[in-house]
Design a protein around this nucleic acid. Structure first.
Lengths: 127, 127
DNA sequence: CTGTATCCGATGAGATACTG
DNA sequence: CAGTATCTCATCGGATACAG
């Protein structure tokens, strides 16, 4: 089972076209997870997202949305009004990601204390 | 529930000391996950890890191990022989991470096709 | 064998200014 | 309103050389 993980996760030589790597990269980057969780609440327009995640730069907002859209997690819908309105919403695929993501969040919250203690101990020993 | 996620995952103003962020950062970086999965098989010595993950540089091997050790996922044990031997093994905390991680891996494998199709479609539309 | 130290290029990400 | 285009700086990560 674990050996299967290793292969799946990118042990050479197929590191690049690994099915997991793409997901991990997206989950690991600074804004994707927060944006998915925000869009899980309800669809948002561009400006709404900016206000919902106040400290994201416009550049990163655009780029993260593009990446999420490219992977099929987010759908972009343009309303040709003046001024233009654009709505972003999670796709079914994006919503399905919430399940394993929730597992991770849950684990992180539960083990928070242990991790903090481990860090404190480590830093104490390594002046 | 989702609102709780947002707070937990680092919506301002407590982005830095967020319990999730640390986990996500570790999961997202290039080598941590692969190393955890490798150590989940059995304890490894430094050189064994290097051989098990052939394309990691010595610099990144050391650094990733330090980070994992600091967070309490990995335990380092030195045998004062000559030449020195050092063994790395998962802690209970590290092993417990396998559960949500497995969920993520599982999801990634299952949705692989959808993601690939989404990417192809996106790239087709955006010449 | 198990690491450190250094250099350096590639990428990530913020700030700012401009456009249909 | 919903983006692009630059510029710039920090961090990531590989290669190489050295050390206990």
């Amino acid at each position: 089972m674990l050996d299967g993980f290793r292969r799946a996760i990118g042990i050479e030589p197929d590191f690049d076209n690994c099915p997991i790597r793409g997901v991990l990269d997206r989950i690991g980057d600074k804004w994707s997870t927060l944006m998915v969780l925000t869009l899980a609440l309800r669809p948002h327009r561009f400006g709404e997202l900016k206000r919902a995640i106040p400290d994201i730069s416009q550049r990163m907002l655009t780029q993260t949305l593009r990446d999420l859209q490219r992977d099929g997690y987010v759908a972009r819908k343009v309303f040709p009004t003046t001024p233009p309105a654009v709505e972003y919403r999670l796709t079914d695929l994006g919503r399905s990601l919430m399940v394993p993501l929730a597992g991770l969040v849950d684990w992180a919250v539960k083990t928070r204390g242990e991790v903090e203690a481990a860090r404190a101990a480590f830093d104490r020993e390594n002046v």
